[in-house]
């Protein structure tokens, strides 16, 4: 079981949120799992954490298609924020549009965080979804 300080789940679909939470129960020990319905709410939460000095999430599960602010817009904001810690961001989508994969790759190259691309459906959380340090070492 991997210990994670804090996890964000950003998805407007309650079923997906339920699924991820359920899967995390068996793979990670995390006292702080927070879910957001869209990028805007998540971004507000993240900014609040930085402002108050609270620990920022180590892992983010990010849906792409969301109202108000979608996954890409959220990523754009995060990339431009001055965050020293490297976050593992798992981009999750039901889209099989190659354009989405390209966009993901574009962000992967320009951002300091670790970016994964996961297609729905997800049946389990992989180690790499939570942990990058092990892979590198």
């Amino acid at each position: 079981m991997k210990k994670v300080n804090s996890i964000y789940i950003i998805d407007d679909d309650p079923i997906t949120v339920f699924g991820i939470k359920k899967m995390l129960k068996t793979t990670a020990i995390c006292p702080d799992i927070e879910a957001f319905e869209n990028g805007k709410l998540a971004l507000d939460g993240l900014r609040e954490r930085i402002k108050t000095g609270a620990p920022i999430p180590e892992v983010i599960f990010l849906d792409i298609n969301m109202p108000i602010m979608d996954g890409w817009e959220f990523l754009e904001e995060v990339v431009n924020m001055n965050i020293k810690e490297k976050i593992i961001i798992n981009v999750i989508t039901s889209s099989i549009d190659p354009a989405d994969y390209k966009k993901w790759n574009h962000f992967r190259l320009k951002c300091l965080h670790y970016l994964n691309f996961k297609n729905k459906p997800i049946y389990k959380i992989d180690d790499t979804d939570l942990n990058r340090v092990n892979m590198v070492s």
Binding site: D13, I15, T16, G19, K22, N65, S94, S95, I96, D97, K120, P121, I122, Y123
Partner: peptide, 17 residues
């Protein structure tokens, strides 16, 4: 494609659970 996929993905995941 997207909408149907997202639903079927949910089905698939839930059934697995």
């Amino acid at each position: 494609s997207h909408n149907l996929r997202s639903h079927t993905a949910n089905f698939s995941m839930l059934l697995e659970f």
